[in-house]
Simulated assay, not measured.
Amino acid sequence: MHDMVAALSARKQAMFAIALAAASHLIAVDVTGMPPQLDRALAVAKTEGWTVACKGSAGEERVIRFAFARDTNEDAVEAALGGRARFVSSTTYYYTDKPMPLRCNHTPVRGYLNRPTQVLALGPDTTLVALMNLAHSCGLKKTIVRDFSKQDLATSTMVVPPGWKTLDAGEDIGARNGPTICFAQLMRSAVAARSAD
């Protein structure tokens, strides 16, 4: 008898959880990034009909909260923000069943590199000049294209084609998480767009 009561109780709890999940819906998303990332997010928001609910900061990065119509789902928002090649640094989704903070400020993300480095990319000079402009727009204003050095390699087994150069941030990128993520996300987004063409 006890097992039957426990099974019914577990079943009621599962049904309640399903009903609660069905009643919950997406109401907003906070997107974090540097100015070129957020400019793109604002353009997407305008096209999608999202409204700006508040603005905040996360260290060097800025945060914008977009509010949605009731029938908006997370997959559609994620796709609008670039899908797998997302162009913003991070997203935080809010649903009706969880409290949403009144302010849009977030704790900044800490550096993720385990050793100091200034190297953003290696490649042909023409490619790196375009990437240098991207790095500047993300806040890495000291970035230059310079001659390649073997110390630029992450591992000693990498082989670099003759004539390749180094895109050098001019400072330790591990200490500049926001601009570094901006550069990486927008570079990845640009590569994905070129691959799709």
Rank of each mutant, 00 (worst) to 15 (best):
H106T: 01
L186N: 00
L140H: 00
V145H: 03
A175H: 03
S156D: 10
C138K: 02
G49W: 03
Y94L: 04
S57V: 09
L122V: 04
T51N: 15
Y112I: 12
D147I: 11
S137K: 15
K12D: 12
L113R: 12
M4I: 06
I173K: 00
K141D: 15
L42G: 06
N105A: 13
D39C: 13
G170S: 05
P108N: 08
V159H: 13
A193T: 11
F87L: 10
L120F: 00
G33I: 08
V160P: 03
S90C: 04
R110W: 03
G59Y: 09
G82M: 11
K142A: 12
A79H: 14
A22H: 11
K150T: 06
D147R: 08
I64S: 05
A43F: 14
K165Q: 06
E74W: 01
S195Q: 14
S9R: 08
R70W: 05
L122P: 04
T51M: 14
P101V: 14
L120P: 05
T127Q: 13
V160W: 07
A85S: 11
P101W: 13
A130Y: 00
K150W: 03
A7L: 04
M15V: 15
G170Y: 06
L140G: 03
A19V: 08
A6Y: 06
M4F: 10
G56T: 09
L167W: 08
R188S: 15
M132S: 01
A190W: 02
A121M: 01
M15G: 08
C54Q: 00
A6Q: 13
A192P: 01
L20F: 15
T72N: 13
Q37V: 02
K141I: 15
R110S: 09
P35R: 00
K12Y: 07
D39H: 15
L26R: 10
D97W: 14
P35H: 08
V191I: 15
V44Q: 07
R146M: 07
F87M: 08
T117E: 07
T155D: 01
D30L: 13
D197A: 12
P162E: 07
A192G: 01
I181N: 03
G123I: 03
K55Q: 06
V159I: 13
R40I: 10
M4T: 04
R110Y: 02
F183T: 02
K12R: 12
S195M: 12
K55M: 02
R62F: 01
A53K: 02
S156F: 06
G83R: 11
T117W: 02
A19S: 02
V145W: 02
D30R: 14
K150V: 01
A196S: 11
V44A: 10
D97K: 07
V160F: 04
V52A: 03
F183C: 07
D97H: 11
I181T: 02
A79I: 12
V145S: 02
R194L: 00
T107G: 08
